[in-house]
Protein backbone atom coordinates (compact mmCIF):
# COMPACT_ATOMS: atom_id res chain seq x y z
CA UNK A 1 0.00 0.00 0.00
CA UNK A 2 1.29 3.37 -0.96
CA UNK A 3 0.43 5.94 1.62
CA UNK A 4 -0.65 9.14 -0.01
CA UNK A 5 -2.74 12.16 0.72
CA UNK A 6 -5.84 12.18 -1.40
CA UNK A 7 -7.02 15.60 -0.37
CA UNK A 8 -5.35 18.97 -0.18
CA UNK A 9 -4.01 21.04 2.64
CA UNK A 10 -6.24 19.72 5.45
CA UNK A 11 -7.10 23.27 6.41
CA UNK A 12 -10.75 22.20 6.48
CA UNK A 13 -10.19 20.12 9.61
CA UNK A 14 -8.00 22.77 11.20
CA UNK A 15 -10.71 25.40 10.67
CA UNK A 16 -13.45 23.06 11.89
CA UNK A 17 -11.51 22.40 15.10
CA UNK A 18 -10.43 26.03 15.50
CA UNK A 19 -14.04 27.15 15.17
CA UNK A 20 -15.05 24.88 18.06
CA UNK A 21 -12.07 25.73 20.30
CA UNK A 22 -12.62 29.48 19.87
CA UNK A 23 -16.36 28.98 20.47
CA UNK A 24 -15.56 27.20 23.75
CA UNK A 25 -13.21 29.99 24.85
CA UNK A 26 -15.89 32.62 24.09
CA UNK A 27 -18.66 30.65 25.81
CA UNK A 28 -16.55 30.29 28.98
CA UNK A 29 -15.65 33.99 28.90
CA UNK A 30 -19.32 34.93 28.43
CA UNK A 31 -20.31 33.14 31.64
CA UNK A 32 -17.24 34.51 33.47
CA UNK A 33 -18.07 38.05 32.27
CA UNK A 34 -21.74 37.81 33.31
CA UNK A 35 -20.77 36.60 36.79
CA UNK A 36 -18.21 39.43 37.10
CA UNK A 37 -20.85 41.99 36.07
CA UNK A 38 -23.42 40.58 38.50
CA UNK A 39 -20.83 40.87 41.29
CA UNK A 40 -19.96 44.50 40.53
CA UNK A 41 -20.09 46.65 43.68
CA UNK A 42 -21.88 49.45 41.81
CA UNK A 43 -23.27 50.06 38.35
CA UNK A 44 -21.34 53.14 37.33
CA UNK A 45 -18.44 54.01 35.08
CA UNK A 46 -15.84 53.81 37.86
CA UNK A 47 -16.75 50.22 38.75
CA UNK A 48 -16.81 49.29 35.04
CA UNK A 49 -13.31 50.75 34.52
CA UNK A 50 -11.98 49.03 37.62
CA UNK A 51 -13.33 45.72 36.32
CA UNK A 52 -11.28 45.95 33.12
CA UNK A 53 -8.22 47.48 34.80
CA UNK A 54 -7.38 44.15 36.46
CA UNK A 55 -4.55 42.19 34.82
CA UNK A 56 -6.43 38.90 34.53
CA UNK A 57 -9.56 40.58 33.19
CA UNK A 58 -7.46 42.34 30.53
CA UNK A 59 -5.85 39.04 29.56
CA UNK A 60 -9.17 37.15 29.48
CA UNK A 61 -10.94 39.92 27.55
CA UNK A 62 -8.14 40.14 25.01
CA UNK A 63 -8.19 36.35 24.62
CA UNK A 64 -11.97 36.54 24.09
CA UNK A 65 -11.55 39.10 21.32
CA UNK A 66 -8.76 37.11 19.64
CA UNK A 67 -10.99 34.01 19.70
CA UNK A 68 -13.87 36.13 18.36
CA UNK A 69 -11.83 37.49 15.45
CA UNK A 70 -10.48 34.05 14.46
CA UNK A 71 -14.03 32.64 14.76
CA UNK A 72 -15.42 35.51 12.64
CA UNK A 73 -12.69 34.98 10.03
CA UNK A 74 -13.65 31.31 9.55
CA UNK A 75 -17.40 31.96 9.72
CA UNK A 76 -17.52 34.97 7.42
CA UNK A 77 -15.13 33.31 4.95
CA UNK A 78 -17.54 30.35 4.83
CA UNK A 79 -20.36 32.74 3.98
CA UNK A 80 -18.36 34.29 1.12
CA UNK A 81 -17.43 30.81 -0.14
CA UNK A 82 -21.09 29.72 -0.09
CA UNK A 83 -22.64 32.69 -1.85
CA UNK A 84 -19.97 34.56 -3.84
CA UNK A 85 -18.80 32.67 -6.91
CA UNK A 86 -16.66 35.12 -9.00
CA UNK A 87 -13.05 34.51 -7.92
CA UNK A 88 -12.02 38.16 -8.03
CA UNK A 89 -14.92 39.39 -5.92
CA UNK A 90 -14.41 36.54 -3.46
CA UNK A 91 -10.69 37.30 -3.11
CA UNK A 92 -11.53 40.94 -2.52
CA UNK A 93 -14.11 40.10 0.19
CA UNK A 94 -11.76 37.60 1.86
CA UNK A 95 -9.01 40.24 1.94
CA UNK A 96 -11.28 42.96 3.33
CA UNK A 97 -12.58 40.56 6.02
CA UNK A 98 -9.05 39.54 7.01
CA UNK A 99 -7.57 43.05 7.16
CA UNK A 100 -10.58 44.50 8.96
CA UNK A 101 -10.28 41.81 11.67
CA UNK A 102 -6.54 42.42 12.07
CA UNK A 103 -7.33 46.12 12.50
CA UNK A 104 -9.98 45.35 15.13
CA UNK A 105 -7.40 43.31 17.08
CA UNK A 106 -5.12 46.35 17.28
CA UNK A 107 -8.06 48.57 18.23
CA UNK A 108 -9.11 46.30 21.10
CA UNK A 109 -5.52 46.07 22.39
CA UNK A 110 -5.34 49.87 22.43
CA UNK A 111 -8.69 50.16 24.29
CA UNK A 112 -7.63 47.69 26.98
CA UNK A 113 -4.03 48.75 27.56
CA UNK A 114 -4.52 52.49 27.80
CA UNK A 115 -6.66 51.89 30.90
Amino acid sequence: MVKRLTVGAHYGFRDWLGQRLTATVMALYTVFFLVKVLLLPAYDNAAWRTLFAGGFMKFATFLFFMALFYHAWVGVRDIWMDYVKPVGVRLFLHSVTFFVLVGYAGWVAQILWRL
Binding site: A72, I79, Y104, W107, Q110
Partner: peptide
Protein backbone atom coordinates in the same frame (compact mmCIF):
# COMPACT_ATOMS: atom_id res chain seq x y z
CA UNK B 1 -25.56 32.22 10.19
CA UNK B 2 -27.70 35.38 10.05
CA UNK B 3 -26.91 36.32 13.66
CA UNK B 4 -23.21 35.70 13.09
CA UNK B 5 -23.19 37.86 9.96
CA UNK B 6 -25.08 40.64 11.76
CA UNK B 7 -22.67 40.58 14.68
CA UNK B 8 -19.69 40.70 12.29
CA UNK B 9 -21.13 43.68 10.41
CA UNK B 10 -21.78 45.56 13.67
CA UNK B 11 -18.34 44.80 15.17
CA UNK B 12 -16.98 48.32 14.52
CA UNK B 13 -19.99 49.83 16.34
CA UNK B 14 -19.62 47.42 19.27
CA UNK B 15 -15.85 47.97 19.61
CA UNK B 16 -16.32 51.74 19.39
CA UNK B 17 -18.95 51.64 22.17
CA UNK B 18 -16.73 49.37 24.28
CA UNK B 19 -13.83 51.79 23.76
CA UNK B 20 -15.96 54.81 24.67
CA UNK B 21 -17.21 53.07 27.84
CA UNK B 22 -13.58 52.73 28.96
CA UNK B 23 -12.30 55.97 27.45
CA UNK B 24 -11.86 59.55 28.58
CA UNK B 25 -14.72 61.42 30.32
CA UNK B 26 -15.47 63.17 27.02
CA UNK B 27 -15.71 59.84 25.19
CA UNK B 28 -17.91 58.43 27.95
Amino acid sequence: RVSGAGLFLCLPVLIALFGASLGSPAEY
